Amino acid sequence: MNCHPAQNPLAVQFWLWGQDVLAGYLEAFGFRKYPNPLGKGSSIYRKEGVGLHSSAAWQKTPQGVLVYLRPAEGFFLLEDDSTLPALPGRAETVNCAWGLEALHPFVEAYEAWIVQQAGLAYRKGLLSNLPPAARRARTVWEGWVFARPPLSEVMLEYTA
């Protein structure tokens, strides 16, 4: 099941990760940069079972490798990550809500780290300059990332 574009916080998160790559934050967070195994396109960043690419994000879960594929705006479950960022011929589709819930702890930890490292002004500045395609999902992203402690306290400062 595909994620509805206006209700998909990953539209914002991918744009933020792209900006963070330019500022060196993904590597500072501990991601290692690898060339795309397909021989073209953007690099792949990996850290402890999590992978990021301009077209996909994935993480190992007890059920298998959960993959979010941007072009499909949907989540898939794979046995391993050997074909990523491309999906293999057979990939099990999973519910968007389940995928977002499974990916949330990683994103929340990363966003908490960004706030610690770069400060609220950095993220606030990026969010105020979102491209139109991501802008419509900003409120959904804020609710997804900041809705739960410990970042809920930061949200009070962030929205002020």
Rank of each mutant, 00 (worst) to 15 (best):
M1E: 12
N2C: 03
N2F: 01
P5S: 02
P5I: 04
Q7A: 06
N8Q: 09
N8W: 06
P9S: 02
P9A: 04
L10N: 00
L10R: 08
V12L: 05
F14Q: 05
W15G: 10
L16T: 01
W17D: 13
Q19R: 15
D20A: 12
V21G: 05
Y25V: 06
E27R: 04
F29V: 00
G30F: 04
Y34V: 00
G39T: 08
G39W: 05
G41D: 01
S43N: 14
S43Y: 12
S43F: 12
I44F: 08
I44S: 10
I44D: 09
Y45N: 10
Y45K: 13
R46D: 12
R46G: 02
R46Q: 10
E48D: 15
E48W: 07
V50K: 05
V50P: 08
G51P: 09
L52G: 04
L52F: 11
S54G: 12
A57L: 12
A57H: 05
A57W: 08
W58S: 09
W58E: 07
K60C: 08
K60A: 09
P62M: 09
P62I: 04
P62A: 08
Q63V: 11
L66F: 02
R70E: 13
P71Y: 01
E73C: 01
E73M: 03
G74W: 07
G74F: 00
F76Y: 13
L77S: 06
L78R: 07
L78C: 11
E79S: 13
D80Y: 06
S82K: 12
T83V: 14
T83S: 15
P85S: 02
A86N: 11
L87N: 04
L87Q: 07
L87G: 05
P88L: 04
A91I: 11
T93C: 04
V94F: 02
W98A: 03
W98P: 01
G99H: 03
L100S: 00
E101W: 00
E101T: 08
L103H: 01
H104C: 00
P105T: 06
P105M: 06
P105I: 06
F106L: 06
V107M: 02
E108Y: 12
A109R: 11
I114W: 13
I114A: 06
V115G: 06
Q117P: 05
G119D: 12
L120K: 14
A121T: 07
Y122K: 11
R123W: 08
L126V: 14
L127Q: 09
S128Q: 14
N129L: 10
N129M: 10
P131T: 01
A134K: 13
R135K: 15
R136H: 11
A137T: 04
R138I: 03
V140A: 02
W144V: 01
W144P: 05
W144E: 00
V145N: 04
F146R: 03
R148A: 15
L151N: 05
E153R: 14
E153M: 15
M155K: 15
L156A: 15
E157T: 10
E157I: 09
Y158T: 06
T159D: 11
